[in-house]
Amino acid sequence: MIEMKNVTKKYPNGVVATNGISVNIKQGEFVYVVGPSGAGKSTFIKLMYREEKATSGDITVNGIDLASLKNKKVPYLRRQIGVVFQDFKLLPRLNVYENVAFALEVIEEEPAEIRRRVMEVLELVGLKQKVRMFPNELSGGEQQRVSIARSIVNVPKVVIADEPTGNLDPETSWEIMNLFEEINARGTTIVMATHNREIVNTIRRRVIAVEGGMIVRDEHGGDYGYEN
């Protein structure tokens, strides 16, 4: 599903964010990416959806070679990847329904299909009763549910989440994690960067630890391994 070979990312200011990373993530896997701040976790994740372009090395996502992928074709890669952020990135002037539908509108999906799929995912994330509400009327957990709904509405093969529980209280974090597990159970690959020790140690999955731009540990069912 996601394959990296010897991937190095050097920023124009000279910072080497990833230094020869090689990894293979299979379809349907649930992967935590852990490590201290500034270790290269974010870059590692951003390389997967071509937010950043690798300086050297090969990356293949769902059979697409990202090194040779033309900038013009990047949108078509993104349509196969859902992305979730710590700060939700919802549009404040759109309501719940519109925020989710937005992801389908901009890829020019048919209106009838948009309605059907948006209601389907809103039901999945448990927000069917709040479709007309605006982001500022929702709790943090609800906002993250909307953003997760948006990330899966076009049925991506993989969901990439950058600290999705970073802004949420523990109880809400568990609810969000349950949602991710449910999405994973439907066969969607999940790659999640996180600082949440308790979650990693409880819901045991594959753990990739990144330090100094390199993978220092990669174990299935591993623990968080850091004091935080």
Partner: peptide, 8 residues
């Protein structure tokens, strides 16, 4: 967001 969800 448009670019993230794959708008051309």
């Amino acid at each position: 967001i448009m670019k993230l969800v794959g708008a051309t």
